[in-house]
Design a protein around this nucleic acid. Sequence first.
DNA 1: TCTGGGGTCCTAGGACCC
DNA 2: TCTGGGGTCCTAGGACCC
Length: 400
Amino acid sequence: VDKERKWERVVFHADMDSFFASVEVATRPELRGKPVIVGGRPDGRSVVSSPSYEARKFGVHSAMPTAEAKRLCPHGIFLPVDGKKYGDYSKRIHQLLIEFTPEVEPFSIDEAFLELPFSWRQREEIRQAGESIRGTIRKRFNLAATIGAGPNKMIAKLASKAGKPDGFKIIPPEKVDEFLLYLPVGKLWGVGERTRASLHRLGLYQVSDIRRLPMERLNRLFGSWGQSLYNMAWGIDDSPLHPWYEDHDAKSVGHEETFGKDISDPERILAHLMELSERVAMRLRRKNYQAGLITVKRKLPSMKLQTRAQMLAWPTQLEKDIFDAAKKALCKFPKPYQAIRLLGVSAGKIVTEENDREPLLMQPLLEGEQELTKTMDRMRAKYGKEIIHRARSRLTDPEK
DNA sequence: TCTGGGGTCCTAGGACCC
DNA sequence: TCTGGGGTCCTAGGACCC
C-alpha cells in the first residue's frame, strides 16, 4: 500500500500542562490533587491565569473572572501569579530542550517548537525522542508536558492541543487530512471568537467546509487572512523554526495596571503614569533598548479601550523622557482626567544601537538626567528596586 | 465583587510629498 | 473652468495568543 507521504520535516511542539498551577504544586507538594487557581485575587477585578486540572473539573478556565471562579469553585486555592518563578522554570525547561537538539524555538513562557534532525524520521525514533523529553521534564521538574509531533509547526501545535494533558500525539503526514477534516474551525491558530463567528455566518463549521472554497473566494472574503486560512485548512505550513540562538529584540515593552477602584484624581493618575514609566524605563535599560514612541492606554469604566501616542525627540531609556511623553500623550485624550479603570504605558519603535539614536524631532536633550538615572540604577542594584523612586510616583496610594 | 497583563500583527483613514 | 494619483508614514483601534 502507498503510505508514502513521507516525513520531510519532523516538528515537535512541547506545551506544559496548566503551567503556572503545576509549578505551584511542584514547589508545594501539599497542593497536589487540590483545585489550585493561579490568578488575581478572587475578590478583585481580575481573571484566572492557570487553573489546575482539578479546578477545571468545576468549570474554571483561564481568562475567566476570578469572582466567577470563586463561585464555581469556592474551596479552590487561589494563588497570585508569581511571574519571576514561572520565568525561571521556563528558562530551565528551554535549556533542557536545547540539550536534546539546538533547533529549539522558545515560543511562549510554557511552549517551544523543536525540529528533529532530518535523519530521525523513523516512527520509533520519533516516539523515543518525545517520550524521552517528556520523561526528563517530569524527572527534573516534576512537571507534566504534552508533546505534539507533525510535519510542520501548525500540525505539531494542533497535535499537542489534542494530546493534552500529559500526552504525546504524533500526526504523521499520511494522517494529517484525517485529523484536519472534522476539526472545528475555531481550533485553528488565529481563529478566535470573532473570526469563528464570521466563518459560522458563512456556513463554515469544520475545516472540511473551508476546503470546499477556492483560494480566491477566501482571499476576497478575508483579505490576506484568507491565504492563511486556505493553507491551514489544507495542512500547508512552510514557516521555518526560529531557533533560540538567533535571538530577536522585542518590538515594544509595556506595563499596565487595572485599579481596584476607578480613579479620576489627576495627581493620582499622574502618579501611576510615573510609576509605569519608571518600570518601562528600567526594563528598557536592562536590555539596553532605546524607545522612540510612547503609547498611553486607558480603559474607561465602560471597558472601552483608548490609546494615544507621542513621538520622542530622540530614542530614550530615561524615565523622565518617558513620563513627559506619556503625559503629553495622556493630554491628547478627550477629558484626560476622567475616571479610568486601567492605565498603561508602552514603549515602541525600539532601537538597540547607540548610533541609531538619530534625532526624531527637534528638541533639546535634557542634561543631568543621564547622571541621575545612572545613580538611581546603582542604588537599586545595591539596595533593591524599591530603594528610590521619583517623588511623583509616590502619590499612587494615599497611604504611601 | 464579571471581564489581567504581556505581547504581535493587521487595517483603515488621514497627512504629506512629489 | 469644481476637487489626480501613487507611495509612504503615522495613528488608533481591534483581533488574537498565552
